[in-house]
Write a protein that binds this DNA or RNA. Sequence first.
DNA 1: ATAAAAAATGATAGCGCTGTCATTGCCATT
DNA 2: AATGGCAATGACAGCGCTATCATTTTTTAT
Lengths: 320, 320
Amino acid sequence: MTGVSTITVSRAFRHPEKVSEDLRRRIQQAADDIGYVRNRAASALASNRSMNIAVLVPSLSNSVFVETVTGIEKVFREHGYQMLMGVNHYSAEEEEALVRAYLAFAPDGMLLTGFNHRDSTRRLLEQAGIPIVHMMELSDREGAYSVGFSQEAAAQAMTEHLLSRGRQRIAFVASQLDPRTLARNRGYRDAIIRAGLYESHRELLVPDQSSVALGAVLLKRLLEQAPDTDAIFFCNDDLAQGALFECLRQGIAVPNRLAVAGFNDLAISECTVPSLTTIKTPRYEVGVEAARMLLALIEGETVPRKVIDLGFQLRAREST
Amino acid sequence: MTGVSTITVSRAFRHPEKVSEDLRRRIQQAADDIGYVRNRAASALASNRSMNIAVLVPSLSNSVFVETVTGIEKVFREHGYQMLMGVNHYSAEEEEALVRAYLAFAPDGMLLTGFNHRDSTRRLLEQAGIPIVHMMELSDREGAYSVGFSQEAAAQAMTEHLLSRGRQRIAFVASQLDPRTLARNRGYRDAIIRAGLYESHRELLVPDQSSVALGAVLLKRLLEQAPDTDAIFFCNDDLAQGALFECLRQGIAVPNRLAVAGFNDLAISECTVPSLTTIKTPRYEVGVEAARMLLALIEGETVPRKVIDLGFQLRAREST
DNA sequence: ATAAAAAATGATAGCGCTGTCATTGCCATT
DNA sequence: AATGGCAATGACAGCGCTATCATTTTTTAT
């Protein structure tokens, strides 16, 4: 309708520098007028590049992965890629279904959370032949790309912090026993055994999904089975917050009678009364760096390090 | 390789009932072996049905829209559609960019949050000629499909609740002034004016993004400009929670000296001390119903009602 | 003014699938 | 045995775009 061939229109959008200024403007104008939007499906088919990347996270219920995804989006959007996000609810089975679903979009790469995949999922990914980067945990296997931090080291650091505050009877309470939670449990154990203070009845691990309400429940349960506990390390801030509220209700003095610590440093954790000691995890940064690494792999660039450890920070606050 | 034509493979996946049991199994087997996944781009192109639907929400930072999206996903997944989600950060400009980006996926329908779109966005959507359903607010214009509840009515109900508790100097505090927040403000005003108790200095509206930390700040600011306030209605639970913490810190007795109310009923709101009076919004249900409505429109079925009001519930708790 | 190089535009084929119509083979009915 | 009907399978074209190579136009160098 502008008297231009289709290929020129295509070029005006994909390689604007190859089309004369004037013509490009006319094409743009015409496109705006009729509300033309390039069809990605056709583009992907013809160019063999979908410009899609798939991202799988376990949950969006607290802000942890929302921030990661925000970082990912930022990087990819800048480079013209479209991010497709799926939530697997901490289930390797759901993950496989999602991998299948997103592979159908012929993504140029994929970001996965952790390393807890089914063998069949791994096979699917291999056959797809696209680059994969794993987030949050650090690689435990040859050849895998990953960006994250050591969950164990962070949990060790927190346990040592509680020890340094003079606590002797430190409990560990966890729910939703995904691999990262279990790694935190190992970190706690390492530190507490090294201090010669390990007592199995101070560990409380339940499979239920984490929530603030569950934190209150688990606090009560733990104090029943180990009443003389003087510090509790919760595997995440949600549980710790619930415990903090329950202490307030029951008149348990925090930190005097009982120290409480969490993990993740959610925004609310510095607002609670008392404010919550926790581990600040580099969630946003993990997203950004993982996206950059994947981008490099997609573009065929060499990646200097296959494993990027972004560390963590201990935020010591009023609750300990 | 199974000695079957491509069209038969296609049929085995799309219309399994049209392929013999035996052959279908063999095709499935072969597909699993080589990790074959159907290419949606090609499928969409050939069939003129992408089986994509695009969903635009303002934020994922608190669980409000996460729950809505969960409901949407559930419905669409059951029907074989893939949901593509975008976050517009309460910006009509970002929304337009997202509409463009997702229109490129040739979605069969789109779900938008609210009615606050640019004219150019509206034009794009019209030209795309796909069904659109709006969520959270109820339609204010001819022909628009919407699923939600009356933000104004809910805010009125909350204000009347505070009045019924004998409060006379009720403040309204809001941030992130999106259309729904402003509708809540109108609801508050209506009720408070009707009670003859409107005083402009008890309204505090700031454009900043909502957060728990901001709740504490705004509480302080409000109490400076209107120290004798005996109840505060916050436009959302995040702010109200921050205020609750600040009251705890300052020793302000809630609800005796000051009643505090929120909006949304986040999971944490019934755990706080004191527990938070708030409006339970049908977030998940909005997602489910909006998805069903859109599905009906896509399939060309008649939709009984263009506007579905799912109501709300007042949760009176300790904080009032 | 002319040749050579560079820039701008076009023609063609084909990406992987599916809608449509055609063909084959089988069974039931007469 | 012949016919019609139906289920199962296949051939072919084309969805909207872009990679590639071909052609035309413009610019630069001589």
